[in-house]
Nucleic acid binder design. Structure first.
Lengths: 98, 98
DNA sequence: TCCTTACTTTCCAATGTGGAAAGTTATATC
DNA sequence: GATATAACTTTCCACATTGGAAAGTAAGGA
């Protein structure tokens, strides 16, 4: 068995973020930041990493006065996450009581 | 939700290794090394990391002439892995088609 | 005693991660 | 129109992790 985990996704904060994004259509920067409990600079860099991998799409839009950044998983991002989670599940498969 | 992933377990090679160990009672160094496809030095260091965390037990025993190193998950190691996998599953929970 | 096997440790380079602080940019407010 | 503020983005820096090569070690054979 060749378990290939995508390093872009596997980092804890990005994994959590990708799972959050996968569950919704779009979510804003601030909400993700609070969920991950990291600084703005750190989230900004993770978003950039995912964006450069083509996994996340970023849209800036001013909603009711204040500008916000909206994040969403791209199609390739969803596929990559699906593959990643499948790999994780395959690894877990042999572990008892899971 | 507070998703805490254990960094000792989360590293890809150690995660795979822990899952392998969880599935059996004992397994030898060489077999794990082949499965992970890493150098001896690297596996040795991962084993040490897990051993120092109290997650893995190492037993050296000569079986049929050649000395071998046998690895097994300790009770705390099993618990930690179980917790880690539970966290991963909780993260995945909201992801569609998983 | 020397050799071989099976790791272990050391050395070193490359990457990744995180926060603080400075920098940007698009609205509000005056 | 100038300035302030919010919401990120970039840069700077420190530190930890990861990996392989090479040197080191320990146990058993020839």
């Amino acid at each position: 068995m060749n378990f290939e985990l995508d390093p872009v996704i596997h980092a804890p904060n990005r994994l959590q973020m990708c799972c959050m994004l996968a569950a919704v259509d779009t979510i804003d920067f601030a909400t993700v930041r609070e969920a991950l409990d990291v600084s703005e600079s750190v989230l900004s860099k993770h978003v950039k990493t995912l964006e450069e991998a083509g996994y996340v799409k970023v849209r800036k839009a001013a909603s009711d006065g204040r500008q916000r950044t909206w994040l969403s998983l791209s199609k390739p991002g969803r596929e990559a996450l699906k593959g990643h989670l499948a790999t994780l599940k395959a690894m877990m498969a042999g572990v008892p009581e899971t």
